[in-house]
């Protein structure tokens, strides 16, 4: 039992970068939350739970034995990206982590750093850019020739996964920002609805395209061998459905959260 667990948790290919970034994120939250608690502004248990569940899920799909299956089965790869780009990123963003992570700095301010990063942040958090990047990255990494290279090259593979996670978190941070848009001057709730709708349909189309295409769209899994003998057609259909339906459900979930915020602030406004 212990041995099985140990095997399951051992990363298929050790990535120091992944360990470092995950530890930094976890340590950042713990430190920031303690600083905030001293000021009586501790994040709620739910936020903490959401953050760590999201982080753990992402870690689990890229740095355990799961990663082996994600490299050698198309549909497992789609589950991996579902967690990185949708579920895990969604939970991390739902925890509203930026104020907590910013609290790590305490009273120190870094005006020069903030100024340097302000334009980048403005661009990445722009609703149009965030949506185009969100959908664009899904299409980019699923472009068959790009996908082929990413599965062969360790560096490209790592770049693929981290770009999906970071982009997912940014997109969901824009969607799930809990502040009143009128005061915080963030994207309005209507804009966020439009973002979700704009992201929804291309994903549905792509998922359906993969599902109904001739088998062999992603032949890298045949070239490199599958983790177990599963027919390429089944693998592709499963992968297509996983690209199609769960992301669409996450979009609805996002819309429900936005709706809740909207109703909250509407009531306050009255």
């Amino acid at each position: 039992m212990w041995h099985t667990l140990q095997t399951a948790l051992t990363p298929y290919i050790l990535s120091p970068l992944t360990v470092l970034l995950c530890l930094l994120a976890a340590a950042g939250w713990v430190l920031g939350a303690r600083r905030l608690a001293r000021q009586g502004r501790a994040p709620s248990v739910w936020r903490t739970l959401s953050f760590f569940t999201g982080l753990l899920l992402c870690y689990a799909v890229i740095h355990t034995q799961f990663d082996y299956y994600a490299r050698y089965m198309f549909f497992m790869h789609r589950i991996q990206h579902l967690v990185l780009h949708h579920l895990g990123a969604f939970l991390i963003a739902l925890a509203n982590p930026l104020p907590v992570l910013a609290a790590v700095a305490g009273d120190r301010r870094f005006p020069r750093l903030a100024r340097a990063f302000a334009p980048l942040r403005r661009i990445l958090f722009d609703p149009v850019v965030a949506t185009v990047l969100f959908v664009g990255l899904i299409f980019f990494w699923l472009w068959p020739s790009v996908h082929f290279d990413a599965m062969l090259s360790l560096r490209l593979y790592e770049l693929m996964n981290w770009s999906m996670l970071i982009d997912g978190v940014i997109f969901w941070l824009v969607i799930l920002d809990p502040r009143d848009p009128r005061q915080a001057r963030t994207s309005g709730f209507g804009v966020r609805f439009l973002m979700l709708v704009a992201a929804l349909f291309p994903q549905i189309l792509l998922g359906a395209y993969i599902t109904f295409s001739e088998p062999g769209l992603y032949d890298v899994y045949a070239i490199c061998g599958r983790a177990w003998p599963l027919s390429p057609a089944t693998d592709q259909v499963l992968g297509g459905v996983l690209t199609w339906i769960p992301p669409a459900m996450m979009t609805i979930l996002g819309a429900l959260v936005v709706l809740r915020y909207y109703l909250n602030y509407e009531q306050q406004g009255d």
Binding site: R71, M151, L152, L154, C224, G225, A227, W228, P229
Partner: peptide, 18 residues
């Protein structure tokens, strides 16, 4: 970057290998 795996054995003990 390649994987392999085994299918279930049939009555004669034959199995597929990916």
């Amino acid at each position: 970057r390649t994987a392999y795996g085994y299918g279930d054995k049939d009555e004669q003990g034959n199995y597929e290998v990916s």
